[in-house]
Design a protein around this nucleic acid. Structure first.
Lengths: 256, 256
DNA sequence: CGGTTCGTTGAAGAAAATCAAAACTCGTGG
DNA sequence: CCACGAGTTTTGATTTTCTTCAACGAACCG
């Protein structure tokens, strides 16, 4: 079992900057992004946006800093403007499950409970906007149309979580890694150009804790995918997609 | 790998009956239920409820009948009024992952996509209300306060799905079964009296496909929990909780 | 009563975990 | 510029957990 990670630094508050609840291209032909881009920003009229903006402050977190920890009172809501994080839960003996790797454009900390159920830890330098939870909730109450947008976000995350359930419950190690890499490629393609190269900001251990494997198995599986020439491993923790079709077949279980 | 299940009967339309989007006790001191109870019904004024009601028709499904299949156009939204179902996804070779076991009070078919990503199959006789998707969406558009309620539902299901990710990614067979049984006990306690007995409407294979195990492992694990006297297996596919505390410790990984 | 499905149990096998160690990366500082 | 050292990745050998295969008994049903 992996050792528990112990980081307790607070995210350092930054100076006020322009409010961007999403950094995504607004009309991009990617379902996930399209919904995100429509979220919040598109919903609010100029005057209301100003009011909303006044609720926020911006901040910055170093790699391995946590925006919040499992068990912390959920007092703030975060909107990531750049960088990426891991969102995880620890079992008492240190076993860890990473639920997601949130990126720019994602909301964090929107729990219904009084405390956070997950820890959000930066993988890279992260910029974010922060909203006091109470004022955020009050704002949502005053602007019913926000409810719909929050619903769209939650529904998307639910779909992703259930997809991950299929992966964790029924896929082999190769299928898991193939699926994971494809989601990364799709997320990258959605934001950037059609590069078939992504950088992995997370370690093998992080990937293992996301896919329900060990770091050794993840490493061996990378090697296996490289040997069969579906991907290439480039310097700088980057991965190139060589055969999308075969990787897709593998990911959904149509390939040995 | 388990053999694929092949059922293609349609849910039989029933006669008009009183609209109940939830059958849960409205003031029950259970978080999950409280939110559900507040959902929809509590949101609409009498006149609007009448309009909403006029959009629905009620129906009935036999065990093993499907309300909808993975890949079907998502034309209807369902609200379960009695009975329970399994919501699952099949891989091409027949591997199956059951995402959830929806019950009375749950909504089904609320996908953002054009088609359903999961199959909903009745475990027991199921009564439900049906709403044409388009009219449901239009209604939600006209009643912004509905968005907030949908968000609460989605957020709850997201929390449950992520809990299941921890289970599938990092728990042992015993821990998985313990966690699963506890959610069943909690759901039952929320609805009924404080009986520590639940009936399992699903087969061992269904449980296995929910927990990422095989039916043999599930069976062995039931035996193991029975031998250590945490639970008792009663006639009629019923399970009695004997030592809640120990089962809870086991479920969250504090026990061998 | 035979047929089917479901649940349990046993024995053998496999995928991934664990244990162990070498190779690589990258920042630091001599 | 290169050597050092901590952390990460890769690879190998062994073990474990769960799966697979197989058999049998119980419940159910026309």
């Amino acid at each position: 079992m992996p050792a528990p990670s112990e980081h307790r630094q607070a995210g350092s508050p930054g100076t006020e900057k322009s409010l961007r609840l999403t950094t995504l291209p607004e009309g991009h032909p990617c379902g996930r992004c399209a919904v995100r881009a429509a979220t919040i920003c598109g919903t609010l009229k100029a005057k209301e946006l100003g009011h909303f903006k006044s609720l926020s402050s911006s901040g910055y977190a170093e790699p391995s800093q946590c925006l919040f920890h499992e068990g912390d009172p959920a007092q703030l809501v975060y909107s990531i403007t750049s960088g990426s994080l891991k969102l995880y839960r620890l079992l008492p003996d240190g076993r860890r499950q990473i639920a997601a790797f949130p990126q720019a454009g994602d909301f964090l900390g929107l729990t219904l409970e009084k405390v956070h159920a997950y820890t959000a830890e930066a993988l890279e330098p992260v910029e974010y906007c922060r909203f006091p939870r109470q004022r955020f909730d009050a704002f949502v109450d005053e602007h019913p149309e926000m409810g719909r947008e929050l619903y769209l976000m939650a529904a998307h995350e639910l779909a992703a979580a259930r997809e991950q359930m299929v992966l964790l419950g029924r896929k082999t190690a190769r299928e898991r890694l193939a699926s994971f890499l494809l989601t990364l490629f799709d997320r990258a393609r959605c934001r950037n150009a059609d590069w078939e190269i992504v950088r992995l900001p997370m370690t093998r251990t992080d990937i293992a804790d996301h896919l329900g494997l060990t770091k050794e198995t993840v490493s061996r599986t990378f090697t296996s995918l490289r040997r069969t020439e579906m991907i290439a491993l480039l310097p700088g923790e980057r991965v190139e997609l060589l055969q999308r079709r075969r990787l897709e077949q593998l990911a959904c279980g149509e390939l040995g």
